[in-house]
Design a protein around this nucleic acid. Sequence first.
DNA 1: TTGCATTTTTAAGTTTCATTAAAGTTTTGT
DNA 2: ACAAAACTTTAATGAAACTTAAAAATGCAA
Lengths: 218, 218
Amino acid sequence: MRILYVEDEKFLAEAVIHLLKKEKIAVDHAADGEEGLELALKPNYDCIVLDIMLPKVSGLTILETIRGRGVKTPVIMLSALNEVEDKVKGLTLGADDYLAKPFKTAELVARINAVCRRPALVEQEMMSFHDLSYDPANRTLNNVALTDKEAEIMKMFLVNPKLTVTKQQILAHVWGADSEHDENYVEVYMSYLRKKLKEIGSRVQIKTIRGLGYKLDV
Amino acid sequence: MRILYVEDEKFLAEAVIHLLKKEKIAVDHAADGEEGLELALKPNYDCIVLDIMLPKVSGLTILETIRGRGVKTPVIMLSALNEVEDKVKGLTLGADDYLAKPFKTAELVARINAVCRRPALVEQEMMSFHDLSYDPANRTLNNVALTDKEAEIMKMFLVNPKLTVTKQQILAHVWGADSEHDENYVEVYMSYLRKKLKEIGSRVQIKTIRGLGYKLDV
DNA sequence: TTGCATTTTTAAGTTTCATTAAAGTTTTGT
DNA sequence: ACAAAACTTTAATGAAACTTAAAAATGCAA
């Protein structure tokens, strides 16, 4: 499970991220609304945790924007103001839950799990590139089943099919940011994915850019 | 059949829930508007029964919010004030029926059944997928009897035969939202359903997507 | 009550996947 | 060409996820 956490209070953010990690929840962190909005638009997350008071772009604006763009990812709003008004406003704009600051991390974990447990109200969209299409609902690439990690990596490619993704980015995204993990993990999974691409018979392949990373290519 | 009942008068709520249970209606109960709103947003219910006067968030606000979010679940409003004002307002906001307090439980049961029968007309039709067809009237799958829970799960599959359904979704829908129930329940019932599919001799099978859920497949 | 169907609980058996290590291959710089 | 670095692939292991049988509990109807 991977979430996006948009929070400007650095100290709080670090503490929360640390604790979430213990719960096996991988976290990408954005420190302001601008960065948060950019990341939130990518279909990479199981859940987005949004502070309302943020530098540059407010949490409510982020929420409104991504919902307007058809992003269905569950959103949990955070706010120092425990006013029911705000809560209702958030929920009206399409938030899935609301948590008042200060909160216990255990409470946040419970909400995240609850929100991810909900059936998707609308089916998530397929992601595609040339003759490849990934179906998030069934976790299949052209009807071939992917494992969890394989799917996470394939999604990274498909979000920006033209871009080269570095091993470090993949490690950070799939295995967690501070990871002591080996880059060999990534290499192993590239091998797995290439095998599946061959099985599919796609003309798309994973191309190595030596010293940089990997990208999809025809 | 599962309904959501939002009611703050504890004693009344308990009595009603007890009586509904006798009518084979499963009930999730929320004791205030906040909790009610949260649960009402989940597509887990055949019907929502909403008191208007509620702590934190009023029933009318809940109704307005969920309709704004595209939730189509039938709603029955309850109110101690038998004012035409409220009734009109509720129906305008998208309520399906209105009941004045105090009411007889038999009356509520009748309204619930009436309101659920509307979409039930659709639901009464056979649901099918390849060589499988489920008959709601007799609760049979290709003439093999299913138990209550087996049927609830099979219906979830048949509503969207192409989609993977997660264990959490099944738990929430069949055992109720607040359930701390074990995912093993679901696993056990998958085993039961597989046995019945074999008994039927269907070519449809329940496929496991490890770490994600289950789906029907040929 | 008793008996039967169903649901819940327990626990042992099975499969799959992430991880690890290590050997093999290609590319790059000198 | 040669060695070092970067990358690829395979195979084994153990932990986690899943399956199933069967016992215990529950609820219901005769």
